[in-house]
Amino acid sequence: MKTLRKYTLLLTLLTFCTVNAQQKKTEEPKVIKEVDQVDKKAEEVNETTNNTNTAIKNTVENSKETLKTIGSLFGSGKGKANKKSKGAIKIDIKEVTYDDERLNNLYTHISNAKGVKKASKNFSNGKASINVVCKENADTLWDGVPKNVRNAFKMLQIDDKSMVLELAAAQLAD
């Protein structure tokens, strides 16, 4: 009798475990399907986010270009000319000494000229260079230098961003 009880108990236990295992097997595919669905939704959200970021970047770039275009359409004529020529101007003066009073006068007038933001002076081997950041072009900057200072120099070359000068011949003999 005891053996019969043991076998019955064992048989009941095996039946329960089998039924329980079958229920888990039917639940596992449901869980796997749900996980797959969550993964797909996450991928869709990531893709949507990436597309949105790209669209925002493109919109910002297009807006910048549009603003530049609008600014160029409505800017004043004087403002346009200044913006085109704004930048660095290099002035080279040949055959001059570092302590030449005419060079120092020229540097003082140019560095204090209207529209000049930065000015620096360099000297090497008898050649001086004045570098300025200016709203005007080189010709307009030169025209702003007082005539008595300009007369001390001879213009050899000029364009929008540079000029080459030398001391005037009458002054070289001094």
Rank of each mutant, 00 (worst) to 15 (best):
M1A: 09
M1C: 09
M1P: 07
K2L: 15
T3W: 11
L4F: 14
L4H: 15
Y7P: 04
T8H: 12
L9V: 09
L9I: 05
F16V: 06
V19R: 04
V19H: 09
Q23K: 10
K24H: 10
T26E: 15
P29M: 09
I32C: 01
K33G: 12
V38K: 12
V38I: 15
D39R: 15
K40H: 07
K41G: 08
A42M: 11
V45S: 03
T49V: 12
T52I: 11
T52N: 04
A55E: 06
I56A: 03
I56Y: 03
K57M: 02
N62L: 00
S63K: 12
K64T: 00
T66R: 08
T69L: 09
I70A: 13
S72P: 00
L73T: 11
F74N: 13
G77F: 11
G79P: 02
N82R: 13
N82D: 14
K83D: 11
I91E: 13
I91M: 14
I93W: 09
I93L: 10
K94C: 04
E95W: 03
E95V: 01
V96A: 00
R102F: 03
L103I: 05
L103E: 05
L103R: 09
L103C: 02
N104E: 01
N105G: 02
L106R: 02
H109M: 12
H109P: 01
H109A: 11
I110D: 06
V116M: 07
K117Q: 11
A119P: 02
N122K: 15
F123S: 00
S124Q: 07
N125S: 07
N125F: 00
G126A: 04
K127I: 02
K127E: 11
I130M: 01
N131T: 11
V133C: 06
V133Q: 11
C134M: 06
C134Y: 07
K135G: 14
K135W: 08
N137L: 06
N137R: 07
N137P: 03
T140Y: 13
L141Q: 02
W142M: 04
D143S: 12
G144W: 06
P146A: 08
K147A: 08
K147S: 04
N148P: 03
N148S: 14
V149K: 04
F153R: 07
L156A: 06
L156P: 01
L156K: 13
I158V: 08
D159V: 02
D159Y: 09
D159F: 05
K161Q: 09
M163F: 12
M163C: 03
L167F: 05
L167T: 05
A170N: 10
L172C: 05
A173V: 10
D174F: 07
D174K: 12
